[in-house]
Write a protein that binds this DNA or RNA. Structure first.
Lengths: 233, 233
DNA sequence: CGCCAGTTTGACCAAGATCAACGCAAGTGG
DNA sequence: CCACTTGCGTTGATCTTGGTCAAACTGGCG
């Protein structure tokens, strides 16, 4: 069984709101807070280094400056679930539980800003407009979460991967060339698939001329039409 | 951006707070608002009647008085996804999109209170404590959403059904006898399974002496230990 | 009674998981 | 500078879970 308390974010930004994104119960677009408080600390982490672990205390939240962060949970039997990837500008770690229910790790080299939670709350309490903004962001996150549940519950492997690619293309850059910082394993755990299935689907797209894969971590879009078709729903 | 200190009782976990729950970007425990505003309208709906449809405008939100409401989305090819079930006390329909992304239907006979959204927003803006409460509720909802994604992405059919039953037992919290208002089809679409699989798993649990099924819509728990074991993770 | 909608069960099938090689590029140490 | 390792990624061969199709059952209701 899982606990009802599990927490947190999702993936994100749609086209009209690509850069701000919440993790683990959180919300982006908090630049106002960041600006208001000069108390953030800049930290850097190496590839695969842990930013916080399941069970850690939740006195801080974070904003990604550069790099990619992975929010995940490891089950006892080895199954892993990746709640979301956070890119530059995204916030994460804003849980209201006492302990972290997920862990956060650096996918590659990462720089983040760490901010105290208590002070931030007060700022929000004193600023209804900011509170509303936060509320709206959380609602969008919730809506996105539902989109992801639909994906996990009802989509085929090919639809999931296609959806993921489109999401990444929209989130990262508008160009044809996409740089995927995360491993195939990360993608699999994010989409509820195995690494082999992710590979096979990508190979299929490659075979069909939808994408090319110059190297394992970059993808070039050849036929957006077809990719959107594959993403279906 | 929120306080950890006083989250002690009032918005706790599922067990001690079974009746409040959010739907597709919404939030419960807004009794304060309900009390503040006397402008709610009481409405009733018959079994399977639509409360609102995908594409409707979002000027109102709702609170369930009695019965069960189903929040769902139908895909073009017939696949259906049920985002959540709302019971007495739960709120739903608090989206911040212009149009409804999901539809809401009465599972059986349902009575709801309909409330205007605009006025509610103002009340929240003027009441930081209420805003914070709402924020925390949304965070818990987001957390629950992630629990559900873990379920949809990584759990087996048996684990999903077991988790669902435990959730229902805790929510409706009659210790032994559970009345399931929704159909097997609803359960299947909620868990990302087919109706046949749900039936088979239930039959399996019955065979193993974990539950008895006096009739299709009620379930009696015989071995909670075993059910929790089956829910695993 | 018999119909109807929902439920249950069985037989079969397929999408994706699992298991197992193999490839390939980036270190690393002699 | 070149074996050798190491960590991913890719591909192929099977196996399993859960989906699909079909038929039988059940309870409520005209």
């Amino acid at each position: 069984m899982y606990r009802q308390v599990d927490n947190n974010g999702y993936l994100g930004g749609r086209a009209e709101f690509p850069a701000t994104n919440i993790a683990v119960a959180q919300s982006g677009q908090l630049d106002a807070i960041v600006a208001l408080e000069r108390i953030g600390t800049r930290l850097t982490f190496a590839r695969n280094q842990e930013i916080y672990a399941e069970g850690d205390s939740t006195g801080c939240w974070y904003k990604v400056i550069s790099g990619t962060v992975r929010i995940s949970k490891l089950l006892a039997d080895g199954r892993r679930y990746i709640a979301e990837f956070c890119f530059a500008g995204d916030c994460f770690g804003l849980d209201n539980t006492r302990e972290r229910l997920f862990s956060a790790e650096a996918v590659g080299e990462v720089a983040v800003m760490r901010l105290p939670r208590h002070a931030s709350e007060q700022v929000i309490d004193q600023n209804p407009a900011l509170a509303r903004l936060l509320r709206e962001t959380m609602m969008r996150d919730l809506a996105n979460a539902h989109g992801r549940m639909l994906l996990l519950g009802r989509m085929t492997a090919a639809e999931r991967v296609a959806t993921f690619l489109i999401e990444m293309f929209e989130r990262c850059d508008r160009t044809k060339r996409l740089d995927l910082p995360m491993s195939r394993n990360d993608i699999a755990d994010y989409l509820g698939l195995t690494i082999e299935t992710v590979c096979r689907v990508l190979s299929g797209f490659k075979r069909d001329g939808i994408i090319t894969v110059p190297n394992a971590h970059s993808i070039e879009l050849r036929d957006r039409e077809a990719l959107e078709m594959a993403a279906e729903a």
